[in-house]
Design a protein around this nucleic acid. Structure first.
Length: 311
DNA sequence: CACATTTGACCGTG
DNA sequence: CACGGTCAAATGTG
């Protein structure tokens, strides 16, 4: 796959923006029409959401350094400003951590949080200005033992239907064994030893705001549900990184997970896919079940493939 | 006990 | 200087 020239890319981006603006305008006109007859409330609500979606997409495209899905990453080292510092103390951490400059990113949006097959470790959570939901920061579990620079940010951008934006930075250089196969193998089990509670609803106990519940530093799942009862219907657990929000009825059921799991299984076990050099390269280096879940992510596969010249 | 998340503080970037 | 990305101590979990 040849990469488009910057000129083409820029022109396409401009066209995409124009199309989005056009679509938004049409939607607005449609809303005006819907407003008139009775009983158009549901449709109007839907139109609002469509317009929000357009606006959100436009803001994403208009923001700097955002690449749409499938853009290869630059070298991870290029994106960090300062060198490493081992002897950091609490009192003086100046220059002691790398901070990502305007790194190239790879954004994916989905209505649920699919396990991408990598082991992630959460290292932060932040309320973002003008954002309804906090942003969650993850790094590769193998950041230190294998110097894997991959990281991602996950942010809920819409509720009902839930919509999550995952922004990937860097690429996996770790040779972690795929957890996908394990998930496949375990898909009939109830074990949940690896799950992590991840509430995407606003938590007043977070951040530097005046805490609503100052005495509560950390909460068990039950406590979260007690404080925010409605979350219970929006969060489900799986053997992946998150409690996945349900796309449909919102219940925490193994069946829901197995439904997506079976999809992954069917694709993952396809001999055609597994026997391909490129794809098997993906599965043996930095397996992402994005490749499996949506079929094949060519860009990521090729990137991983290129990242290992011995293949 | 090892490894995970939480969360306030720190600090680089724009 | 505000924002937001990262650190790291405290704490949770199996």
């Amino acid at each position: 796959m040849e990469s488009p020239s910057p000129e083409n890319s820029s022109a396409n981006l401009k066209r995409a923006i124009e199309e989005l603006i056009r679509g938004r305008e049409f939607t607005r006109q449609l809303k005006e029409i819907i407003k008139k007859p009775l009983g158009g409330e549901v449709a109007e609500d839907l139109v609002d959401k469509i317009m929000d979606s357009f606006s959100e997409t436009l803001s994403v495209i208009n923001s700097d350094d955002v690449r749409v899905v499938g853009t290869p990453f630059s070298s991870p080292e290029d994106n960090y400003s300062s060198g490493s510092c081992k002897s950091s103390t609490l009192k003086d951490r100046r220059g002691c951590y790398k901070r990502r400059k305007t790194a190239e990113s790879n954004i994916k949006e989905s209505s649920d949080l699919v396990d991408d097959g990598h082991a992630w470790r959460k290292y932060g959570q932040k309320q973002i200005l003008h954002a309804t939901y906090p942003r969650h920061y993850f790094r590769c579990t193998h950041k230190y033992d294998q110097k894997c620079q991959a990281s991602k940010q996950v942010q809920k951008i819409q509720d009902n239907p839930p919509l999550f934006r995952t922004t990937y930075y860097g690429h996996h250089t770790c040779k972690a064994f795929s957890r996908v196969s394990q998930i496949i193998l375990d898909s009939t089990m109830d074990g949940d030893s690896n799950s992590v509670l991840l509430s995407f609803d606003q938590n007043p106990n977070c951040y530097n705001n005046v805490p609503t519940f100052p005495s509560i530093k950390q909460k068990t799942k039950e406590e979260v549900f007690n404080f925010y009862p409605k979350i219970e219907d929006q969060i489900q657990s799986s053997s992946s990184d998150y409690f996945l929000p349900a796309a449909n009825d919102g219940h925490l059921t193994p069946a829901t997970f197995e439904a997506s799991g079976s999809h992954m299984t069917a694709t993952a076990l396809s001999p055609d896919v597994m026997s391909s050099g490129v794809y098997s390269s993906c599965t043996t280096t930095a397996t992402s079940n994005d490749n499996l879940e949506i079929g094949i992510d060519f860009e990521e596969c090729l990137w991983n493939f290129e990242g290992y010249s011995e293949h």
